[in-house]
Amino acid sequence: MLEVKQISKVFHKNGVPFEALRDVNLEVHEREFVSIIGPSGCGKSTLFNIIAGILPPDGGSVMVQGKDVTGKTEACALMPQKDLLFPWRKVADNTILALQIAGMKKKEAREKVEPYFSIFGIDGTQELYPAQLSGGMRQRASLLRTVVQDRPVLLLDEPFGALDSMTRTELQDWLLDIWQKQKWTVILVTHDIKEAVYLSDRVYVMTPSPSRVQEVISIDLPRPRTPEITMTTEFVKYEARLKHAFGKKESSEEGNT
């Protein structure tokens, strides 16, 4: 469905080359939930921006549904780490931003997003300003803004990274639930091992720079999953395996990631 082939990227900082990505290969199937984890600064965001089409790679290609979309933004919808909802737009108007950019009339776009509000559990917030919403609610609206673009692939860039742990857990449960109903094709970047195991079908583990794929781990836990699954031995085994792959350095940070 989505194929990332032999992607490489070198940045030049003050004339000094810095190799961010080397021959990265990645594959995502239709309706699959894939996570990418790796240490900070391992080029996850660079890879993401390349997949999203807003950063041209130095080599390699991105194919979606058999079509070359390298450097094109048409295939993927991006959900950033910060919600980036505009304070001057009401919540509903924020969610239709991409539709308006694509040329849809405001009224038509509002009608299109309306049914999603109850599905996303934020019904009643349409006419509020983002500042009146909690952090968790804002992330839901942010995901809604991503989903309504009707792009084949959703790219979630550490969407819960800036939330407090209670809200994060709540939103992970929520995302799991809504994804199992909607079955979007998702790539999630995270540095939270538990989150990766809990949500994903497969997890890509990246190495530090120059970044490449170190290991791909299939999470063969049954679906639909519920929060109880995190207490099973299977789950803990996957967590341990990922932690091992992730390297000992990161395991010390496990408490706050």
Binding site: N49, A52, G53, I54, T73, E74, C76, A77, L78, P80, Q81, K82, L84, L97, A98, I101, A102, Q149, L155
Partner: peptide, 10 residues
């Protein structure tokens, strides 16, 4: 980040 988001929307 906002610029990136908008560019991703085309």
């Amino acid at each position: 980040e906002t610029v990136n988001l908008l560019r991703s929307m085309g």
